[in-house]
């Protein structure tokens, strides 16, 4: 035995460079810490929603009509569905959106798994499905916003005799003004994340096709973007619960 190499198991040398003490590359670590900071941002938004909701009156039992006085129950607001105008289908559309996003998270893990096996064709296939899922989700959200902005057929009659339809930053037929503001801000901020994710997914799909990762010898970039994509799914799970279910 000529020389003794620096052993990664030797604790004295662990943090002195040359090894990865957390057994994760720099890029992956930084993605984790970015996601931690993003988690704080989204928590702050959802906690703000909680605070403002608790500071408002909720609907009195038996008198469940839209009014600027009362914070509405979400399943009465989000009950519309494309091509089924006029039917009361609470949470069905948003349930479909949730399913689409969870599904695209699954296809992303499958792409990462294919990357471990250096299987270019499989990586391409699963990344394409992930892009399709992400684009479908953004499309659904656009429809949801359109419906929210246009409002119901009857609208809401205000105390001053004026009838208003839908929600904007200036008026809101469904409840207090802040309800609409928070809806636009929280789902909009999440939707922006999904859109960025779709763009990133497209970039890694392009690189995969151009053999960038095959030549590099590993598909770790898929894992890093995958972390981001799962995080977007994770945030949606919380938005779904706190904005639509409770």
């Amino acid at each position: 035995m000529a020389t003794v190499a620096v052993s990664p198991t030797n604790d004295d040398k662990l943090w002195n460079g040359g090894v990865e003490p957390l057994k994760a590359s720099y890029g992956k670590l930084m993605m984790w810490f970015f996601l931690l900071s993003d988690a704080f941002t989204f928590s702050a938004l959802l906690i703000t929603y909680g605070l403002i909701r608790f500071a408002h009156k909720s609907w009195p039992a038996g008198a469940e009509v839209f009014s600027p006085e009362y914070w509405p129950i979400p399943e009465k607001v989000f009950n519309a569905m494309p091509f089924l105008h006029g039917y009361d289908l609470p949470l069905v559309f948003v349930g479909i959106m949730t399913f689409i996003l969870i599904m695209s998270s699954v296809t992303m893990v499958l792409a990462v798994e294919a990357g471990h096996r250096m299987d270019k064709a499989d990586v391409q296939k699963w990344l394409l499905w992930t892009i399709v899922g992400g684009a479908a989700f953004v499309g659904c959200q656009a429809w949801e916003w359109t419906h929210f902005i246009h409002g119901t057929d009857e609208g809401t009659l205000l105390a001053n005799g004026q009838r208003i339809f839908g929600a904007s930053l200036a008026e809101n037929q469904y409840g207090p003004m802040l309800f609409a503001d928070l809806f636009f801000f929280i789902t909009g901020f999440h939707g922006t994340h999904v859109l960025s994710g779709v763009i990133l997914n497209f970039l890694i799909f392009y690189n995969t096709t151009m053999d960038v990762y095959q030549k590099r010898g590993h598909y770790e970039m898929i894992e890093k973007i995958g972390l981001y994509w799962h995080f977007v799914d994770l945030v949606w799970v919380f938005v779904f619960t706190f904005f639509y279910l409770v």
Partner: peptide
């Protein structure tokens, strides 16, 4: 959330120090 973070994001299989950070 546990299943997404632990399984899909693979945090369950990372080093403990990374998990807790």
């Amino acid at each position: 959330a546990f299943y997404i973070v632990a399984e899909f994001m693979h945090l369950k299989y990372e080093v403990k120090a990374l998990m807790f950070s």
